[in-house]
Structures are given as structure tokens and as C-alpha cells.
């Protein structure tokens, strides 16, 4: 494992979930929540703990859209691409976002602030277009609101 914090986080998650029936998914979710991604170096240890082959663990990680195997930006910005949002301008919003950020779906902006992703419905379909930024969902997002939201994400972190 590349960094000690990473291996600690993975070890803690393994300990928590290895004896839980169906624990692989919550384990992967915990690792990703802690580290922001699932380091490929973590796969062998996870595989051993769950009595699976590395290929099987890798297969699970790659099946689900939520998981990533390399670090993303500081913020995850998801634009809803599904029908109810399309009906109120989501396609234009998607183009606006990619132009503003100079990044396509799956890409991270050069300043490391934002990873842009598609999402298919956020359950906010009567108040679209919908955008999720980390754990906040925003509704009725027009071009101006999108610009303001993205600008806020790109502010340097104050710590």
C-alpha cells in the first residue's frame, strides 16, 4: 500500500465488515468514503479477507458506477441526465457545465476542485434540472445558478 493512512483505513474497514454477510459492498463504500477512492493496492488484502479472488473483487468494484480507483477532485458534481430533467433543460445544462469546467464526464478539473459525473435521477424530478454536489442536491438549476455553484466549489479550501 502506498501510504500508511490508506492501509490503516482499509484495515479498519476490513475488520469491521469481513464477518458481516454481504459485507463487501459496505466495506468498499467505507473505504471510498474515507479515502475518496479505492486504491488498487487494497484489492489483494480485501480479497483474502473475503475469501475471493482479486479478479472477483475487481469485478465488483468495476460493476458499480459509484466506485473509483483513483483520487477525484475535492468536490463531486453530478448532473442529472435523466428524462424528467431533460424535459426542463438538462441537456443544455450538461453542455454548459462541460464548457465552464473544460472537463467532460469522468474528468477532474485542472485545479483539482471538481470531478464531473453523470447521474440518472436524484428523486427531485418535479424541481429539475437537478445537480448534486457532494451530499447536497440542488433543484431548478439554470445556467447562472450552475456557474455560482461551481465557482463556490472552486474557492480554495479555508482550513
Amino acid at each position: 500500500m502506498s501510504l500508511p493512512v490508506e492501509s490503516d483505513a482499509v484495515a479498519a474497514a476490513i475488520q469491521r465488515w469481513e464477518n458481516e454477510p454481504g459485507g463487501l459492498l459496505p466495506l468498499l463504500q467505507e473505504v471510498q468514503a474515507t479515502l475518496g477512492f479505492i486504491p488498487p493496492e487494497a484489492v489483494p488484502g480485501i480479497a483474502t479477507a473475503f475469501n475471493l479472488s482479486r479478479a472477483e473483487v475487481h469485478g465488483v468494484i468495476s460493476f458499480y458506477h459509484d466506485f473509483r480507483t483513483s483520487p477525484g477532485g475535492r468536490h463531486r458534481v453530478q448532473i442529472c441526465r435523466a428524462e424528467a430533467c431533460q424535459a426542463v433543460g438538462a441537456r443544455a445544462l450538461e453542455r454548459h457545465a462541460t464548457t465552464l469546467l473544460g472537463a467532460g464526464f469522468g474528468d477532474t478539473t485542472d485545479d483539482g476542485a471538481i470531478t464531473l459525473e453523470p447521474v440518472y435521477c436524484l428523486g427531485n424530478c418535479a424541481c429539475g434540472p437537478s445537480v448534486r454536489i457532494d451530499d447536497c442536491i440542488h433543484g431548478r438549476v439554470n445556467g447562472d445558478r450552475l456557474e455560482a455553484l461551481l465557482a463556490a466549489c472552486r474557492q480554495p479550501e479555508v482550513s
Binding site: A82, E83, A84, C85, Y120, C121, G123, N124, C125, A126
Partner: peptide
């Protein structure tokens, strides 16, 4: 899992 777009009753 309420995956259908345009639905939010479960939520």
C-alpha cells in the same frame, strides 16, 4: 432503489 427517472414517491 427507486431508479426510475421521474419517480420520487419512495423517497
Amino acid at each position: 432503489d427507486e431508479g426510475d427517472s421521474g419517480t420520487f414517491a419512495d423517497r
